[in-house]
Design a protein around this nucleic acid. Sequence first.
DNA 1: TTTAAAGTTGCGTAGTTTACTAATGTATTG
DNA 2: CAATACATTAGTAAACTACGCAACTTTAAA
Lengths: 142, 142
Amino acid sequence: MRLPLKTEYACQVLAQLALTYDKDGVRQVEDLASAEDLSANYSVQILTTLRQAGLVNSRRGKNGGYQLARHPDEISLAEIAIAMEGETLVQSSPGNEGMSAAPVHAAWLRVNEAMLESCREISLTELIASPAEDTGAQDWVI
Amino acid sequence: MRLPLKTEYACQVLAQLALTYDKDGVRQVEDLASAEDLSANYSVQILTTLRQAGLVNSRRGKNGGYQLARHPDEISLAEIAIAMEGETLVQSSPGNEGMSAAPVHAAWLRVNEAMLESCREISLTELIASPAEDTGAQDWVI
DNA sequence: TTTAAAGTTGCGTAGTTTACTAATGTATTG
DNA sequence: CAATACATTAGTAAACTACGCAACTTTAAA
């Protein structure tokens, strides 16, 4: 069960926005994308989805850019994942005509709920890289 | 994040085996597959995986078939999912060179752990259809 | 000891999804 | 009105999923 890269990227971009939240940080796509090693074009698509979900605000034209809609403490991993993937994080099919299809589906619905709950308990603030340890991003070879 | 059909099918087939566990039920593929509305061919592949994981035993030749390796209470959804998909249920990529890649990955690892824990708490017994309500499987049209 | 039932293995593949790129449209500011 | 930056849509190569098929091996029973 692979977590879509798109969802991970969304987390990274939002983490990047969270870094400059208090500095009234309006950031441009190019800036965000390069900081997270993503293509600008793809980042735009992700940011558009996040805007439609109400997690970020955007401004067009010169000096435009993106900005978190709320304080990083008030944005949970659950909201991010739901914005990218829809309400059910663990999509199990209501299924075929098999005798056990229904109870199996019900069980996975419970798992989905547990996962959602776990995602609600993680805030965007926890996704920010601690400036002390740049964790490999600055590793470079001559 | 779609739960693979293969994993759901594995649950259904095992639930079917659990139904006849106390009756020393050795069941044949054709039987299991039709009860769960699956193709026999595909079910074989699933059952083979489950056997390699040690969840079922098989006997070849005439009067062969499959059988649960343990009591349904002693088999958890976690074991089933791991048998089909590997240790990590929520696979997040350790990722790119982005600044926030590491903390984001760490967060999803926590979610994975929560999901695993939730799956450990659901036993195969809970996947058995209650005989009272056949929940749609017997619906038929002339 | 034949024979047929039943599991085992591996290959092939159509259809879908993912992770992008690219091109074009639209709003904002100086 | 021109430069800038977000918005939207279309297109696509690669990977993955959910199967089907066929050849092989094992075992019980006749």
